[in-house]
Design a protein around this nucleic acid. Structure first.
Length: 298
DNA sequence: CTGACCAGGTGGAATTGGTG
DNA sequence: CACCAATTCCACCTGGTCAG
């Protein structure tokens, strides 16, 4: 894994003293000549760029939803040794001085970060599973698992491939990736650190609670919709998605023959989703018309 | 005021699951 | 096995916010 910052310095200023240890993970570094350019690598395959990406997924809206912690900030925190593993994100208060001294940061941004992390400690099991970055397990798949097996985190962590592949929508590939992930000692430690050191609290998922009947309005049972473009009546697309799902409908990411409505305020748009909808004869409907048609409370 | 960063969004390739 | 539906994952874009 290449160490980006240091490699940049190397090419810019020629020979500089090269750190023996990776600033992100502390493992040994290796200086290599790539086509005449000296590039510094970290010998740890799980380090650097890859690590930042996984941290970004961990803090993203569909996972722990820690506001203000995107890639650039995570990179800085890692460089300053503030975060090395996920649970460190919940220990920012021990690094106040370091963070306040970081370029582009001040007391205000430190407080904001720290509070956002504190607030994020309560999380649903499906978001928790998604946050870990298991290959091919996104939020939808995590939801399927929680819906089937409930909110008990110990139970969820110990599911085996056979139990998983019996869930509709989960096949062998995903089932095995899941079981393998939670069998690895390093991942077990990671999860335990989150639960016991950082004291992350897994709350009851709305999915595993007793089935809620659609409240008021018309039922959307059996309806499959795709949402694209920006919305006027909702903060973002996932708000509308939640409403549709709670009313028994389904929201997917791609337009197919099975799609009933493409919700799009810009009906004339030439986006690929609009084109696909026209091609398949799927009804394109504006947000307002959709709300009216199904008498959705805004 | 300006540049860096962030949230939210787009679009499409790659991959997986299910089915005939 | 071939095919379609659906999801995951990534690179990229844009308007708004904030530190310096």
């Amino acid at each position: 894994m290449i160490i980006p910052q240091i490699s940049e310095n190397l090419t810019r200023s020629g020979n500089i003293s090269v750190p023996e240890r990776c600033p992100l993970c502390g493992q040994e570094t290796r200086l290599q000549d790539d086509d005449g350019v000296k590039v510094l690598y970290c010998t740890n395959p799980g380090c650097a760029a890859k690590k930042i990406k996984s941290f970004a997924l961990f803090t993203s809206r569909d996972a722990f939803n820690i506001e203000g912690l995107s890639e650039a900030t995570l990179e800085k925190l890692a460089e300053h040794h503030v975060i090395a593993t996920y649970s460190d994100i919940f220990s920012l208060k021990y690094h106040r001085n370091t963070i306040v001294d970081m370029k582009g940061f001040g007391e205000k941004s430190y407080k904001k970060l720290q509070e956002a992390a504190e607030k994020a400690k309560k999380i649903t099991p499906e978001k928790f599973i998604y946050s870990l970055g298991i290959p091919n397990i996104g939020l939808s798949t995590a939801k399927l698992i929680v819906k089937e097996y409930g909110s008990n985190i110990r139970k969820l962590l110990n599911l085996n491939a056979m139990e998983l592949s019996s869930v509709e929508g989960i096949g062998d590939v995903i089932a095995e990736a899941y079981e393998e992930f939670f069998r690895k000692p390093s991942n077990i430690k990671l999860v335990n650190d989150l639960l016991y050191r950082a004291k992350v609290e897994i709350i009851e998922s709305p999915l595993s609670a007793s089935e809620k009947p659609a409240e008021g309005g018309a039922s959307l049972a059996g309806i499959t919709a795709v949402i694209t473009g920006s919305l006027n009546h909702f903060g973002n697309r996932s708000e509308l998605k939640d409403i549709i799902e709670n009313a028994g409908g389904k929201v997917t990411g791609s337009v197919t023959k099975k799609t009933d409505f493409l919700i799009n305020n810009d009906i004339t748009s030439n986006s690929s989703k609009n084109q696909k909808a026209k091609e398949l004869g799927v009804e394109i409907i504006s947000e307002d018309d959709f709300i009216k048609k199904f008498s959705i409370n805004v």
